[in-house]
C-alpha cells in the first residue's frame, strides 16, 4: 500500500479508537483522500453548541504536506476566510509530518477559542473581536444557529 493511504487508514483508526473531545471525522464513502469532519464549538466561547462541518482534502504528499482544510459551515472568525479556508500556521508553513488528523482538528478547535486577530483572514471579524466584542459574539452566534440547519 502506498504510504499515504496506509497513514490515512492509521489516522482514521486512531480517531475512532481514541477520539479527542469535541471533534470527529471520517473519510467519504468513495475517496479516502477526502474526509468530512465536525468540530463542536468549545464550551465557554461564543461558538458553544455549534456543530461546524469541515472538509479535509489530502494530496498524495500527505503527511509530508498538510491537507487542505475548509469550513463547509458558514463561519465568522478572524482567521477564517469567506470561502471557509483557514489561516492557521500548522496548516501552512509550520506543518510537521508528525501531526495527524486528530491533531489538526483539535488545533482548529483551539483556534475557535483563541482567535489571532493580528493575522486576519476576515478583517471585519478581527476588528470586531478587538473593538466590539458584543457585536462579534452576536455574529458568531448567528453562525452557531446556522450550523444547526446546514
Amino acid at each position: 500500500m502506498e504510504s499515504q493511504n496506509r497513514r490515512l487508514m492509521r489516522d482514521f483508526k486512531r480517531l475512532q479508537e481514541d477520539p479527542p473531545t469535541g471533534v470527529s471525522g471520517a473519510p467519504t464513502d468513495n475517496n479516502i483522500m477526502i474526509w468530512n469532519a465536525v468540530i463542536f464549538g468549545p464550551h465557554d466561547t461564543p461558538f458553544e453548541d455549534g456543530t461546524f462541518k469541515l472538509t479535509v482534502e489530502f494530496t498524495e504528499e500527505y503527511p509530508n504536506k498538510p491537507p487542505t482544510v475548509r469550513f463547509a459551515s458558514k463561519m465568522f472568525h478572524p482567521n477564517v476566510y469567506a470561502d471557509g479556508g483557514i489561516c492557521l500556521d500548522i496548516l501552512q508553513n509550520r506543518w510537521s509530518p508528525t501531526y495527524d488528523v486528530s491533531a489538526i482538528l483539535t488545533s482548529i478547535q483551539s483556534l475557535l477559542s483563541d482567535p489571532n486577530p493580528n493575522s486576519p483572514a476576515n478583517s471585519m471579524a478581527a476588528q470586531l473581536y478587538k473593538e466590539n466584542r458584543r457585536e462579534y459574539e452576536k455574529r458568531v452566534k448567528a453562525c452557531v444557529e446556522q450550523s444547526f440547519i446546514d
Binding site: A82, A121, S123
Partner: peptide, 20 residues
C-alpha cells in the same frame, strides 16, 4: 460601516491559496 466591511470580506481573496 459594519455591513460594508463584511461585504468586502466576502470578496477578500484567500491570499494563502494564491501563494500556495
Amino acid at each position: 460601516s459594519f455591513d460594508k466591511g463584511y461585504s468586502e470580506d466576502a470578496n477578500q481573496v484567500n491570499q494563502d491559496d494564491l501563494i500556495l
